[in-house]
Simulated scan of single mutants.
Amino acid sequence: MSPHLPGPRLRPYTPADRNAVLALVDDDRMGGEPASTPAMLDEALQGRSSVDAGWWAELEPPEAVVAEDADGVVVGALSYAPRLKDDTGQLLWLHCREDTRTADALIRRTLAAFGAREVHAFGFASALSPGLEALPVRHRPTTAKALERAGFTGQRLGRYMLAALPVEGLPRLPDVRVGPEPGDRQAWRLEAHQGRRVVAEAVVGSPVQGTGVLRWLGVLPDLRGRGLGRAMLGNALGVLSGCGAHTVVLYVDDDASAGDERDRTAAISLYESVGFAEMDRLYSYSRPRAPGTGGMPAPEAP
């Protein structure tokens, strides 16, 4: 596209844009992600999400903007909101079929809305991408480059991994209790007990359109290396299969160096050994406050 052509026209989202925006979101889907629905879009537009709900509750009501081409066709959309507690702006989601001109225009609109304030992008999951807390940079390289051109710096958060269900041959722990995850009506918590002690736990997201999410799996530090993680994984995947899932995705933290207590090297090896494949790397982004502009004081610790 010639750089001399005018950019897209930006305007506020209206209900008439619903189908066009859903199509934009679906064009950005990766393997394992469920198709977006009107209910998902409505949740996102209202500033709600079952995943990362506490972070969404800290935001002011979000704004949604669409981009139109010269023929009036919607070619991009984004949503952003201020967070008053730290005086930052949050770019919540953006979809533009990886068109450079549209991505640049939408990001400029976000920065204009927040002036000199610090701005964060793709920091937590929206209702349009359940569980996906950051930008998959290999799948969406144009959006990543547009953020960098606008002065954002990326931080690697994790890996997006995918496996088919059922996974055969995994051991299972005998005394595992399954119940609702507190504060999340769409997830289940598994706890493995040895006597009164919880020795391993996992959290799984209820399947959506046949895809479940492994949100968390952990073993007590003094019991690691004994096969409890593999067995607990068997229990977690068994729950998802029993709920009708035929695919499972997971997001593995991958921002800690070897030897750090948050190092996930062993966990990634476990997941790969049972058939999970890496689909992408996940990054969040931040752009610092303009120098010399001050800002609200940091909140006091409770």
Rank of each mutant, 00 (worst) to 15 (best):
L5I: 01
G7D: 06
E98D: 13
R101L: 07
P38F: 02
F122W: 14
Q186T: 14
P130Q: 12
L135I: 10
D42S: 14
A35E: 15
V199S: 00
E133Q: 04
G205I: 03
H139C: 00
V176M: 05
A290P: 01
G31Q: 14
T143K: 01
D17N: 11
Y271C: 00
A146C: 00
A163T: 15
E118D: 10
D26P: 00
V249H: 04
E272Y: 02
R140Q: 15
L41D: 13
D222E: 15
G275C: 07
T142F: 01
V73M: 09
L135H: 12
L94Q: 10
A200S: 12
P166W: 04
G115V: 13
L106R: 03
T110D: 11
P288F: 07
L157D: 09
M1W: 09
G244Y: 12
R262Y: 15
L10W: 10
T265S: 15
A121P: 01
V203K: 11
A35N: 12
C96W: 06
A236C: 11
D86V: 12
A164V: 03
Y80C: 10
L250H: 05
L147P: 05
R177V: 13
E168Q: 10
G7M: 08
G123P: 02
D28N: 13
R172S: 12
Y283I: 00
Q194R: 14
A164Q: 13
R108G: 07
A192Q: 00
W188S: 11
P38N: 03
A64M: 08
G210F: 09
A301L: 12
R117I: 07
H4K: 11
R18G: 14
M279G: 10
T247C: 05
G76H: 05
E58I: 02
L217M: 11
R262M: 12
R48W: 05
L5P: 03
R289N: 08
Y285D: 08
D280P: 00
D27E: 14
Q90V: 00
L78S: 12
I107D: 04
A116L: 07
P174T: 08
L217Y: 08
D263W: 09
D26A: 08
L214D: 01
R287V: 07
L111I: 10
G169D: 13
G229E: 11
V178A: 13
R140S: 11
K85R: 14
W216S: 14
G123L: 10
I268N: 03
M232W: 01
Q186Y: 11
F152E: 05
M279W: 01
D17Y: 07
P136L: 01
D253W: 09
G72H: 02
L190P: 00
R29T: 03
T100V: 12
G72E: 07
A298D: 09
P62T: 06
S49H: 06
V213R: 05
V74A: 02
T100C: 00
P221I: 06
R177N: 00
E118C: 06
S273A: 07
K145Q: 13
Q155M: 07
S257T: 14
A245V: 09
L190E: 01
Y13I: 00
Q194N: 04
R189G: 02
L217V: 13
L170Q: 03
G195Y: 08
H139P: 00
S284Y: 04
S273M: 01
A116Q: 03
Q46A: 15
D26E: 12
A267P: 09
H4A: 15
D254Y: 11
A236D: 08
S49L: 01
R189E: 05
V176S: 07
G195A: 09
D99G: 06
Q155D: 11
R156W: 04
F276K: 01
